[in-house]
């Protein structure tokens, strides 16, 4: 595997990071997937605020929230905190 990585002459010194973790997808960690009931959702953004993984975003153009499953680790905080119980966790 290490052969794919850059050699010591190619990388910046001192371990200055070269990639944003946005390109490291953690979505495949999950066992449970959040499912949102759009009718129950009041767009209060509680889930956006509490998500530890930045996997739920407010999209101003759509005036709606959007789940980014490529980061969601399926912790279920969103479902637990949703004041209208609009989110349920489903076993993958």
């Amino acid at each position: 595997m290490t052969s794919k990585n850059k050699n010591w002459k190619e990388i910046a010194p001192a371990g200055v990071c070269s990639k944003s973790s946005k390109s490291f997808l953690t979505g495949d960690w999950k066992t449970y997937t959040p499912i949102r009931d759009v009718k129950k959702c009041v767009r209060c953004l509680t889930c956006v605020i509490f998500c530890p993984d930045g996997a739920i975003n407010w999209v101003p153009d759509k005036k709606d929230i959007e789940f980014d499953m490529s980061y969601c680790k399926g912790c279920g905080i969103c479902a637990n905190e949703c004041p209208t119980k609009a989110i349920t966790m489903k076993l993958e």
Binding site: M1, T2, N5, W8, I11, P13, G15
Partner: peptide, 8 residues
């Protein structure tokens, strides 16, 4: 995967 390279 990288520590060794920095030491070099």
């Amino acid at each position: 995967n990288y520590y060794f390279e920095f030491k070099r």
